[in-house]
Simulated assay, not measured.
Amino acid sequence: MPVAQTRTTPKLVIYGCGGHGKVVADIALTRGLSVEGFVDDKAPEGGRVLDLPILGGATWLEARRSNVRVALGIGENQARCRVYELCERLGIIPLTLIHPTAAVASSAQLGAGVVVMAQAVINPDARVANGAIINSGAIVEHDCEIGAFAHLSPNATLGGAVRIGAFAHLGLGASVLPGKAVGDEAVVGAGSVVLTDVPPRVVVVGVPARVKRQREDR
C-alpha cells in the first residue's frame, strides 16, 4: 500500500536584514506568520537579527526555491526590484504584507510583493503595483495609482487620483495635491508639497516643490 505524501508548508524568509527588513519581519510576526529567518547577500551567514538567523544569500534561496516564501525587506527601489526579479526567475511570487493596523479599502488593488506598514491608509479604488512600499502612516487617497517599486515614506500623503511613477520615492511627510503626477524615478524631498506635475528622474524639494536637479544614479 503506497505511503501518503504530506505537503510541507513553505517557509517564509525576509530578503534583506537591514532596518527596513526588520520592519517587514515585524509585520509578518505581528500577523502570526512563522518567519524562518533573513536572506541577505551582504550580511554574514550565521548572524542574527531580531533573534532570527541570517540564512545565507541568493544561492541559499535558489537551493530551496521549492519550499520558500519571500517577503521583500529592502527599502531601496532598484535593489528591491532586482530581488523581485530573482524571485520571479526562481518561480517564487513575493508575498504581499499588510500590517494589522493599516486600513486598506476592499476595492483597492495591491500587487505582489507590496508592503503596507503600520497605520497606513489606502482608500477605495487605489491601485498599488508590484513591489511598492506604503510606509508607516502614509495616506493613499481614492483612485491613486502607485507605480511598481515606488516608495512612499512615513507620513507621505497623496490626495485623490494622484499618479506616482515606477521607482519614484516620496520622502518623509511629503504631500501631493489631488490629481497631480510624480514621474518615474523622481524623488520628492521630505516635507515637500507637490502642486504641479513632477517630471521623471528629477529631485524636487520645498513648498511648493521645485526641481533641484536631475537624477544621475541608476
Rank of each mutant, 00 (worst) to 15 (best):
A102H: 11
I92Y: 03
G91I: 07
I122H: 14
G189A: 03
P44G: 10
P94T: 10
V182N: 00
L170I: 04
S192C: 10
A168H: 04
L12H: 01
A43H: 07
L97I: 14
A138S: 10
K22N: 09
D143N: 15
I93P: 00
G91D: 05
L50G: 11
S34D: 14
T8C: 04
D125V: 04
F38N: 03
I74T: 04
Q109S: 14
A4W: 00
V140T: 11
I54E: 00
L172R: 01
C144S: 11
D217K: 01
V188A: 05
G173L: 05
K22D: 06
H142I: 10
V203L: 13
P178H: 05
G183L: 01
V176N: 02
L90E: 02
M117Q: 15
P100W: 00
G46C: 12
G47K: 13
G159H: 09
D197E: 06
V128G: 08
A150P: 05
G47M: 13
A118S: 14
Q119R: 15
E216P: 00
G189D: 01
E45N: 05
A120C: 12
L152M: 08
V121P: 01
G75E: 11
T101C: 03
A174W: 08
R163E: 08
A150C: 04
V116F: 12
N130Q: 14
